[in-house]
Design a protein around this nucleic acid. Structure first.
Lengths: 251, 251
DNA sequence: TTAATAGTGTCTCTGAGACACTATGTG
DNA sequence: CACATAGTGTCTCAGAGACACTATTAA
């Protein structure tokens, strides 16, 4: 229930059957953001290096505590702006992780968000202690479970807390939403070819897609509008450039 | 991020860029459970009457605060056991609601869960101040948004806080998951006919379904096993009774 | 001209909807 | 018997996969 805990009178005590008064000190509340992007060699996630205990030297998702007068969405947006200098990107709540021992020091419940962005909008260099790890998904379909993340030199990164699970949950979610929500477009520049879009879908789903069927489905959706322009200098016949116009343009 | 807040040394201060130290008092953390069932006249949700301010006399979702050493899932299960005397029912996290002013007194962030149960397992009489309201969904498909809930005498109930939104989110979620997750079976007794199952699906989706196609789809899924028994005394040809055997039985 | 990819036309296969028909219970 | 619903067989239609073919650009 959503009652506050200012005055705990006997009637509220009775009302909250099963609630132990000794539990009144409440958990800390944080947000963690799974910032995903797709580069040429696959799916990538933004991680920051922890410079203190616990998990010193591990890599963690960008995160922060929720302010008292701040909505959860606002907290996630603030974290994204502070850690990755990003504003106005796709950002959606994912799941809330609250295992009692997920942080060994104290109780921290974390509301996880996921964000999607085109790599062109990301400038890793200007944010210290941030890297884009390569995500390795050890399951197919929407099975779910923890993932591995590889660093620049190909070795697996040590991930902090339950963040391997959190990233896995984000992958599972976007795989499920990919074919009915405008997710792929978030990972592309404003104008793109159908082949670009298919590559994004294949990277997210982790399997090849049928070219013909993909083209038909995308064009039939009415969410794409041809710009009349073509890609430049590609060494072969250039493809038409499209841009996303959303659901409303559907006839 | 999932760091605790025991010792806040300068390096952590720098690490948590954008985090204001004045915000350290953290929000209260609660769980609310959307307990849904399907009776003959439609979808129903369990509500408890608030007997104090704010929203005195309104109807609220069963809920409670999260204990310091209790997982979120455990808190939701505890609430369900305390308020509705239910154990072992389907229970899954839904969404976390954290608008700063959702509770007018103090900041309460609520992790919403939804539970599904067959009405035969519910005994409303033995729990005081609990009623099963009739859910009226004012949108179609998976549009989402708040719902209305009607009391026994047909008038709309005044719902506490943002609980109309929370229930709406639960409906949206189960509509989306209905055809790829074993949700319908949770709302039926262990043994049921295909017509029963179709009625459940129709109530959840809020629209009629094609009988032939529904039968084929369900039988082809391999998740149903005929018991060899038939329903009794129905005034016409009795239908075969099935029970749910899960995904593993798929060939 | 050749290489490489863009884009089209068409065939088949599968699943959903529609509908007719048969089967089997109660009153 | 009539009546109501269970359950089956079959036709059609729409979307996905497969594949052949044409189109268009760079080198």
């Amino acid at each position: 229930m959503s009652a506050g805990r200012q005055k705990v009178d006997p009637s509220e005590q009775a009302f909250l059957a099963g609630y132990d008064a000794s539990e009144f000190p409440h958990p800390s509340l944080a947000v963690d953001v799974v910032l995903l992007t797709v580069s040429e060699d696959g799916l990538r996630v933004a991680l920051v290096r922890r410079d203190e205990h616990p998990c010193l030297g591990c890599w963690a998702l960008p995160g922060g505590f929720v302010g008292m007068k701040e909505s959860l969405d606002a907290a996630a947006a603030r974290v994204l702006a502070a850690k990755a200098r990003l504003k106005g990107v796709f950002l959606e709540q994912l799941y809330t992780f609250g295992a009692p021992a997920r942080d060994p020091r104290t109780r921290v419940v974390s509301v996880a968000y996921y964000a999607l962005v085109h790599p062109g909008r990301l400038t890793v260099a200007d944010v210290a202690e941030l890297q884009l790890g390569r995500v390795q998904v050890p399951w197919s379909g929407e099975t779910g479970g923890p993932v591995a993340v590889l660093g620049a030199d190909g070795e697996a990164l040590r991930l902090a807390f339950d963040h391997a699970e959190v990233i896995g949950m984000a992958i599972k979610r976007i795989r499920g939403k990919l074919d009915y929500a405008p997710i792929g477009f978030q990972l592309l520049p404003p104008t793109f070819t159908l082949r670009d879009l298919q590559a994004i879908h294949e990277v997210i789903l982790g399997r090849p897609l049928n070219k013909d069927s993909f083209r038909r489905r995308m064009l039939a959706s009415g969410e794409l509008q041809p710009t009349g322009e073509r890609e430049q200098t590609v060494g072969h016949r250039p493809a038409e450039l499209y841009h996303y116009v959303g659901r409303s343009a559907r006839r």
